[in-house]
Amino acid sequence: MSSHTRIILVCSGKGGVGKTTLTANLGIALASQGAKTAVLDADFGLRNLDLLLGLENRIVYTAQEVLEESCRLDQALVRHKQESNLSLLPAGNPRMLDWLKPDDMQRIVAMLSEQFAYVLIDCPAGVEDGFKNAVSATKEAIVVTNPEVSAVRDADRVIGLLNTHGVKPVQLVLNRVRPKMIASQDMLSVEDVTDILALPLLGLVLEDEQVIVSTNRGEPLTLNGQSSPAARCYTNIARRIQGEDIPLIDPSKEGSGMRDKFRRLMQTKIF
């Protein structure tokens, strides 16, 4: 499996844009589509992936013990109960940051590649050592951003760094899209962001309150095939990663009443 393994870094630059939520949901979705998938929490300073997956009480060992060779990889991997194709490799103690090197990340990812078809790496925010270590171990990347100036600017910086490191392909996920705000032109549109960043769009994720409900429970939206707006988006993204040709949701086509038609008329470009 090793050489065919898809190693995908989920990164953003700016914090809090939705990397961990995306990693958890894609992990579950890919696994439920039958792919053996590992999610690696590379945010050693502020780990959260275990919590979003509801696996926080089942951690015995972490990436740290694997690297120190005080346990085997399969002892540290936490397998998801319902979605047995998915395993989490938890982040170790924050003190790992003091000694972790790109070599260490590469070793961990190489081990995971032997057993899994997909390795998703949840990257820390920022462009410092944590990011650099993670970049050194990946082949592909997904850049997550929000339709907001600061998030887009930071995404641009990260895209530049990914290009310098030869990471390919780099694709974009636009998270927390609000069709109503785009329609009233108080939010950057999907094209605005893809034009500015000049990246292919892997998918967009609608703003959705259910995301918070699902994190409360530790059950990602893609578990149990839920159908909330964000759940649909995450499932579509996973299927596109698997090579399926799934059309994008068009936020401007959401809604078909008189008011929506009027809104569309108002946003037609005249000159």
Partner: peptide, 23 residues
């Protein structure tokens, strides 16, 4: 420039913020 921008201009309102963000 969209219909909304023109109406906003005529009414002396602020232009929608997305175009400002873009620029």
């Amino acid at each position: 420039m969209t219909l909304r921008d023109i109406i906003n201009k005529l009414l002396g309102r602020q232009v929608a913020s997305a175009s400002t963000a873009r620029e």
